[in-house]
Computed example of a mutant assay.
Amino acid sequence: MSTSASDGTAARPAPTRAPGELLDVRTIYAEPAALALDRGRQVVERWPRAEVVEVPSAQRVQGLHDDAASVDRWVRVKTEVLALGVRKTLTARRNERSANWIAPSTANGCAMACAYCYVPRHKGYANPITVYANIDQVVGYLQRHVARQGPKPGPDQCDPHAWVYDIGENSDASVDAVVSDNVRDLVTAFRDLPTAKASFATKQVNRDLLDYDPQGRTRVRFSVMPHRMARLLDVRTTPVAQRVAAVDDFVAAGYEVHLNLSPVVVHEGWLEEWAELLDELDDVLSPAAKAQAAAEVILLTHNAGLHEVNLGWHPKGEEAIWRPDIQETKRSQNGMENVRYRARWKKVWLQRLLDLMAERTPWLTVRYAF
């Protein structure tokens, strides 16, 4: 595996951070209703020196999310600030791509800072973790929702047997597990739901999750991309090599482990870099990991509003992902107007990567690609 940048110079290794090292919480913006719940008190007790500021809404904190000056402190806010609220709407949303259903979020935002993340597109000038304290209500809702579905009538691209519920659409569950026990509670709940399984994508290796005993009812999707691009765009995440190396441990601990080849960023030499990463996957993963593996392949989607925010804290990353010469505007499934690679070229580039996967990692089934 090459460790050189495209200009021939040695690539600088990304710093390794344990999940807990991402947070040094100084301020917790909390809804009073959340502070009254056991889970809310648990969050506050984990950072006893943090100032607790009561707010009417944890999702839109005045002076934080609406303050353009927050961009200058983008990463510091992620490190030093938490928001604590109560999930108001309990609804499972149909997806049928990565999962059959998107579960009600138990967190929103992230301590990591991936330049292409879609969550900040909804949140203004700051994107710290917001954790929801009414976990018992969320778990109860999901148990009832799963029961209403009954057995899955047949296989689909999400899973051949189980209804799949994404429990981390708006956050990274591996980091959320540092903030509270919400993720542990969800993994525990799905362990007792034989017709369903939980699923979440992650760019962080949190080895505390190895003790959760999922018994095959939770799918972890490790997101991977070529090392050089990950060092530029996957800010504050676990290095890709360590994500790959963790797959076998999570399989042994009872998780189903898939891979997200995401996002695929097109640039000069991009396909050669993916070939190196696919070879690494083939070399590192055990036969047991390969036998249960599957992949999602997702080409980059960006957004004009996020582009403007990113220019305030990570302009170098924008040079790679904001490419008007090869991108076009398209309305996404969620109704947002985003920027994607031009359709006629995207189709060709996607097929080239799929052909490369068939050659280098024939054991890696592609569940869906777009």
Rank of each mutant, 00 (worst) to 15 (best):
M1V: 13
A14S: 13
L23A: 11
Y29R: 06
A30G: 04
A33K: 06
A36E: 12
R39S: 13
G63K: 09
L64Q: 03
A69E: 10
S70H: 02
V71I: 13
W74S: 02
V81K: 05
G85R: 01
N100E: 09
N100P: 00
S105A: 12
T106Y: 11
T106V: 12
N108W: 04
A113I: 09
C117Q: 07
Y125Q: 04
N134E: 03
N134W: 05
I135A: 00
V139A: 02
L142T: 10
H145D: 14
G150D: 13
K152P: 03
P153N: 09
Q157G: 02
H161Y: 08
V164R: 03
A173K: 06
S174W: 00
D192Y: 15
D192K: 14
P194C: 06
P194L: 08
K203A: 07
Q204A: 07
V205L: 05
N206E: 10
R207M: 08
R221S: 07
R228L: 08
L232R: 09
T237A: 15
T238I: 07
P239G: 01
V240S: 06
V240I: 15
V247R: 00
A252Q: 13
E256G: 02
H267D: 02
W270M: 03
A289Y: 08
V309G: 07
K316F: 04
G317I: 05
G317E: 04
A320R: 04
I321S: 00
E328I: 07
K330E: 13
R331I: 14
Q333C: 01
G335V: 04
M336C: 08
R342D: 11
A343K: 14
W345I: 06
W345H: 12
W349T: 12
L354Y: 01
M357E: 09
E359N: 09
E359R: 14
V366E: 10
R367G: 04
F370G: 15
